[in-house]
């Protein structure tokens, strides 16, 4: 609290300039550091004691809160739920632990800050700055040293050493790059093929039963997968990421696109469920307008018109799967998708 260690206190005369009315000659000149204003704690020992007690109280609260944290950890079962107004139902253990931990930490912080603000010296002090850049003689010394070192290494004179060294240093990181090769297989044509092939039945995703045309009502949206693909298959995630299908039934008269009509069966059309934008599964269907909407980025496709993009960031229509009905009356695929499903890529063409 004393000011004896302040290196650069302004002389009283300079401080006086601040209190006085503006310097007549230089009204905008720097008046220098304003004099220190005492806080109540600096002049009134009783106020200082009050601050001391407040700080100590805060630290004590922190100790109690930590005890509370441990007690909560031991006492509260981890699946108990409590109602806290106005937040609602909370996990009791999480609530108690978080609150006690928060209080324990916050009180330490509040105590320390209160201590600093009320009891530690608040006299502002000035420190000098020095330019970051070195003085010319320092620079000259460094340059001379560097030249000497470079000369002694003879790097500039013995070009053969220099060039082969650069060559070696440039080449060796290639080993590290090569090692990355086995991070994954090459793409090949994998993105062009799905599990669908001629004769594969369309299986309802929810019931796991093969679909018949009469199962698909007008206006409904059904999700399907290829027969034989089960959820516990090792490759399920990778395969369903490409093969997921969206099936709707339209009035054949409503179908505007010629190919769509050809590839449909009694107004039942099957489109890839994977958005051609960045691959989200499309899951919203508006039956009045036959629009399908991707909930991720709002690309909108007109399923009655070749799944053309009518809004949003997708760049091309959803691929359609050509379907028919087999001898037993089940919907089946008449081949794989004829173009890659999902987001576009360089080799897509």
């Amino acid at each position: 609290m004393s000011s004896q260690d302040i290196p650069e206190e302004k002389s009283p005369a300079e401080q006086g300039a601040h209190v006085a009315v503006a310097d007549e000659k230089h009204p905008f000149a720097d008046p220098g550091l304003p004099p220190h204003e005492h806080r109540i704690q600096d002049v009134d020992e009783r106020a200082a004691r009050r601050s001391e007690r407040t700080v100590a109280l805060l630290f004590t609260v922190s100790m109690l809160a930590t005890v509370g944290f441990i007690a909560s950890y031991v006492a509260i079962p981890h699946d108990k739920s409590i109602f806290v107004f106005p937040i609602g139902h909370l996990n009791a253990l999480n609530f108690a632990l978080g609150l006690t931990l928060g209080l324990a930490l916050f009180s330490i912080g509040a105590g320390a800050v209160h201590w600093a603000r009320t009891l530690m010296s608040d006299v502002e002090v000035a420190d000098e700055r020095h330019p970051i850049a070195a003085e010319p003689d320092v620079k000259a010394k460094v340059m001379a040293d560097f030249k000497q070192g470079a000369k002694e290494s003879a790097l500039g004179r013995r070009k053969l050493i220099r060039n082969t060294m650069f060559g070696a240093l440039a080449l060796f990181p290639l080993s590290g790059v090569v090692l990355l090769r086995d991070l994954g297989p090459l793409p090949g044509t994998k993105l062009r093929h799905t599990l669908w092939s001629k004769g594969k039945l369309l299986v309802n995703m929810n019931t796991n039963e093969p679909l018949r045309p009469e199962d698909v009502a007008v206006g409904s949206l059904t999700f399907a997968k290829p027969e034989g693909l089960e959820e516990d298959d090792h490759e399920f995630q990778n395969e369903i990421a490409k093969a997921a299908l969206m099936i709707i039934r339209l009035q054949p008269d409503d179908i505007k696109d010629k190919q769509e009509l050809d590839w449909s069966y009694q107004g039942i059309v099957a489109y890839s469920k994977i958005c051609t934008h960045v691959g989200c599964p499309i899951s919203l269907y508006e039956q009045q307008t036959h629009h399908a909407l991707c909930p991720c980025h709002q690309s909108t496709f007109d399923l009655s018109d070749g799944a053309k993009v009518i809004f949003g960031p997708a760049g091309h229509p959803l691929p359609q799967l050509r379907i028919g009905v087999n001898d037993e009356g089940y919907l089946e695929a008449l081949g794989d998708f004829t173009e890659p499903v999902g987001p576009a890529f360089w080799e897509r063409g």
Partner: peptide, 21 residues
């Protein structure tokens, strides 16, 4: 004191947020 204390203030506030939100 101020900066050290402020660490505890930040941590305390985040802990309370995590307790209720």
């Amino acid at each position: 004191a101020k900066a050290g204390g402020f660490f505890f203030l930040v941590f305390g506030v985040i802990a309370v947020i995590a307790a209720i939100a």
